[in-house]
Every structure is written in structure tokens, then in C-alpha cells.
Design a protein around this nucleic acid. Structure first.
Lengths: 210, 210
DNA sequence: ACCAATCTGGTAGTGACTACCAGTACGGTA
DNA sequence: TACCGTACTGGTAGTCACTACCAGATTGGT
């Protein structure tokens, strides 16, 4: 069997995923998440309900699915290990946000606009908000992994978990504010402000921004 | 209409709620949350499935429902307003945990044991974990309300939200550790340690413990 | 004894989600 | 070019959470 699967199949698969997710986010935004059935999404995307479930395990994943998982953890590993934990995590979060929130605010097809629409859905819909916070919990574990490496010391892991969870919660506050402002405020700035509010104004090093 | 409803009706209602929830947590722990249907819970509790839904809006609420909401917010208001935000929130969290986690570890009918069983379910089951984190989000809002009062200044609210979210995330790390240790460690101590790991060892004032 | 409010239960749905099965298109091979 | 294993897609039937809508029973106050 070919371990490197064909590019054509993979591209088609990614294509349908993007199409289905785009139609889903559009319909959810227009009519509301609960008022839109999976069958509606399937019809709009021109596929069968079965195909939707093949690509997205649950209806909620139509909004939550994100290809950019792991970006933060990679950024963690690139920070100097001698800094305090909250320093390292905070800088990585700010940098990742700078990468993800790039793009034009007014371009409706931009990645930034799509991210914003998904985020607004996640905040407004209870079921999505809950799942979104649980994703943060998973992200926290990957950050802890990047911070502690193979260290089996329970106390080290515990401290890293507490720091990572606190940083992510502060970032979440910034994300909510960003969504409420409809993306008009600079997201990395908001995250830095939230981190400063939680950990003190001097707790965050100078992020890599001009 | 009588605004103060009869004590007999209220007591019976609370009684059935306790019974149903106790059977639910027991069955969920024995067989797993997903493998147990609401009908199973209703049968075990000796009521109809309809009655279960009258008392608990969703299956998840059978585990999540907690009468002790508002305890933290009350504790916040009792803290001196001149302390840093994370100080005030942290002390209130430690104090609330001391009240809630009291009771014997070995007494299977104790409130502490029941709280522990529910917490272990919330951590092990993805759907419950997500809802639990969303409850923390609601708790965060109530803390912010207790902190800021009627202040309409957006920046004040933003800073309070960031601080409250960060403190709650640190507490959650402590809760997970407590559940993993099956309640053997002192919960207020764990929370204080988590807060110290996130905000620095000197960030938490002396909690009201001997 | 009577009324209003509440609690409880039954029925018939909707909708998310899951096997199980069949048809079809792709990718590599002879 | 013909062939075959694999993956993608679709249909059917079913489970289960959850929701109106309705009917009977119980409680509290008049």
C-alpha cells in the first residue's frame, strides 16, 4: 500500500472539507447553530448528510475544526528556557495570534474574517463555547508537553499546567473582546493586555511586534 | 399566589432531585456516562424519564448541578478592595474550597465524597469536561460582577475578566490533581500551590487556615 | 368543598449520531 | 489497456437525547 497517499485524493478531501465548513459557518451565522440541521449544511454544500459526518465527527466540529493546532506548542519550544513560565507561554501566544489574525478585516474571504466568524459563533452558542473551552484544555496539555519535555517530576508538571491554564484563560478573555469588537482591535495587543492584567504589567516581555 | 412556596412541596422536590442525582452519579461511575441512558437513571431512581427531565434540563446536568453556586462571589465581596485582583480572587477560591471539601474522605455518604465522584466524572467524560469548563466561564462572570460592581469602565471589566479567568484556570488544575489523588491531598493547599505557580509564590496572601 | 398551581406520566415527534451495506472513483500494477 | 485493492460516497434503519402537547393526581389556600 502507498504510505504517501495520492495528492489528488488528499486535495479533493481537503477541498470538500473547506466547502462544507464554509457553508456550515455561513448557515450557522445566518440562522443560528441550533436552528440549522446537519441536513441543511449538507444540502447547501451539495453533499449527503453521511459525507458531512465522514469529515466532521460532530456538528460542533463544523465550527471548531482548525488546521492550526500545534502552532503554539511549536512557538513555546522556540522561547528561551530560562524565562518564567508565564513569560514563555505569553510570548508564544502573542506571536501565534499575530500569525493567525493576519489578513484584511474587510475581505470577506480572508482567513482572518473566517476565524472571526467562527469565534463569534463559539462565544454566542453555549454548546460551542463549552467545546471551545475544552479545546483550550487540550491545547494546555500540548503546551505543558512542550514546556516540560520528558520530565516526570509531578510538581514541575503541576506548575506548568497551572501557568499554562492561567495564560490560556487570559488569552480567552482577549479573544472574547476581539470578537465583540468584530476584529477591529489588534489581537496580539489585546492578548498582551490581558496577560498584563493577570500577571502584572511587567510580566510579558516585548513581543516580536514593531 | 403565595410567593413563599410551601415547604412540603419544596422539600419533596429537593428530595427527588437528590435521589435522582445520586443514582445518576452512581450509575455513570459504574457503567460510564455514555453507556448509561436517561431511562436507566429514571428506572434506578424509581421515576419516569419525564420526571428526570423536569428536574435536570440535560443529561449532563445530572452530574454538573451544584447548589453551591454563588459561594465564591460572596467570598469576593468580603475581601479588602485594596489588594491586587489575583489576591482577592485567590483567597476567595481557597476559602470556598475549604468549606466545600470538608467532610470525611472515607464516609461514602459525605458531601466531600459525592463532590469527588462528580469531579472525577467531569474530568473523565469529554462532554462533561466541556460543560464543566463552561460553568467556570459563568463563574468567572459572577466574580467579575462582584469585583467591579456597577463600574461601566470597559478596561476595568477587561482586567477583572483576565484576572478571574486566570485564577479559575489555576484552580482547575488543582481540582484535576485533587481528583487524580482521589481526594487524599488537601484541596485548599493544592489551589494555593497552583495559584503560586501561576502568579508567583508571594502572590497569595495567607489563607484563613490554621 | 372548591380552585389554582404544581408535580408527574404518556405519546409522538425532531434531530444528532451510528452501524451496516452497496455503488463508485481513484492509484498502482500487470 | 485491463485489473484490483482502497478510499470516498450514499442509503437505510436504528438508538438516544430532548421537546412540545396533553391528561391525571396531589398540594395549599379560600
Amino acid at each position: 500500500m502507498p504510505d504517501q497517499h495520492s495528492t489528488l485524493r488528499a486535495r479533493r478531501r481537503a477541498e470538500t472539507q473547506r466547502t462544507v465548513q464554509a457553508h456550515a459557518v455561513r448557515l450557522f451565522t445566518e440562522r443560528g447553530f441550533d436552528a440549522t440541521t446537519v441536513a441543511d449544511v449538507a444540502d447547501a454544500a451539495g453533499v449527503s448528510p453521511m459525507t458531512v459526518y465522514r469529515h466532521f465527527p460532530t456538528k460542533e466540529d463544523l465550527v471548531l475544526a482548525d488546521a492550526n493546532v500545534g502552532l503554539v506548542a511549536d512557538g513555546i519550544a522556540a522561547t528561551p528556557a530560562n524565562l518564567p513560565l508565564t513569560h514563555r507561554i505569553g510570548s508564544a501566544l502573542v506571536d501565534s495570534a499575530a500569525q493567525l489574525s493576519s489578513g484584511d478585516v474587510h475581505d470577506p474571504g480572508s482567513n482572518r474574517r473566517f476565524l472571526l466568524a467562527r469565534l463569534q459563533l463559539m462565544i454566542a452558542t453555549p454548546a460551542l463555547r463549552a467545546r471551545h473551552l475544552d479545546n483550550h484544555y487540550a491545547l494546555q496539555q500540548s503546551i505543558v508537553g512542550a514546556l516540560t519535555g520528558e520530565s516526570p517530576d509531578p510538581d514541575t508538571v503541576f506548575r506548568a499546567q497551572a501557568a499554562a491554564g492561567a495564560c490560556l484563560a487570559a488569552m480567552h478573555t482577549a479573544l472574547v473582546r476581539w470578537a465583540e469588537d468584530d476584529g477591529r482591535t489588534d489581537l496580539p495587543d489585546l492578548i498582551a493586555q490581558a496577560l498584563a492584567a493577570a500577571f502584572g504589567d511587567d510580566a510579558i516581555g516585548s513581543p516580536t511586534r514593531g
